[in-house]
Amino acid sequence: MTVAGEPVRVRLSVNGRAEVGLAEPRTTLAEFLREELGLTGTHVGCEQGVCGACTVVVDGAAVRGCLMFAVQADGRAVETVEGLAAEGGMHPLQRAFWDAQALQCGFCTPGLLMTALVALRERPEWTREALRERLSGNLCRCTGYSTVLDAVLAAGRAGAGDGGDDGSAGAGAPASGEAGPR
C-alpha cells in the first residue's frame, strides 16, 4: 500500500511522436507503454531485469523497460519496436530477422530488435563472437540464437544502424545514438 501514490502526468516522445499519459510513481516504463499508451509490442518476461524482452531505447541507449519507472522517462525520447518500420515497409533489422528465421514464438523478439538496433548504431560491423556477448542479455527460449546472430550481422551489412533506412526508425533518436565504430 505504501508504494502506491497519486498518478502523475508523464510527457515523453515515443517513436518521434509526443505522448502523454498518467503513471503512478511505481509504474514501470514497460507497463506505461503497454497499459497507458497501448503499445503492447514491448513485452514483459520477468520484471526482474533478466530476460531483456522489455528492452526499449531511451535517448539512444538500450534500457530495460521493467527497471525504469515511467516518471524517469518524462521528457525523454523513447523508441519501441512499433517505431522500427516505416509505412508499409520493414526496417532492415526486421527484414533480416524474417529472412533468417530469427524468431519462433516472437516473445523475445522486440527486445532483441531494440538491443540489436543500438548495437548496430554503435558500429555496423561486429564479429560473431562479440555480437554473441552483446546479445547475451536477451534471453530467447525458442531459437537457440544462431539465426538471431545471422540476422543481426546481415542487417549490419545492409546498413541497419544508419538510423532507419526505411525512414522512421531513427525518428526519435538523437544523433548521439550513432557513434561510429570503436
Binding site: G41, T80, L84, A85, M90, G106
Partner: peptide
C-alpha cells in the same frame, strides 16, 4: 507468422 510479430503487433 513473422511480419506481424516483428512489427510488435502480436496478440499475446
Amino acid at each position: 507468422e513473422d511480419p506481424r510479430l516483428l512489427a510488435g503487433r502480436g496478440r499475446y
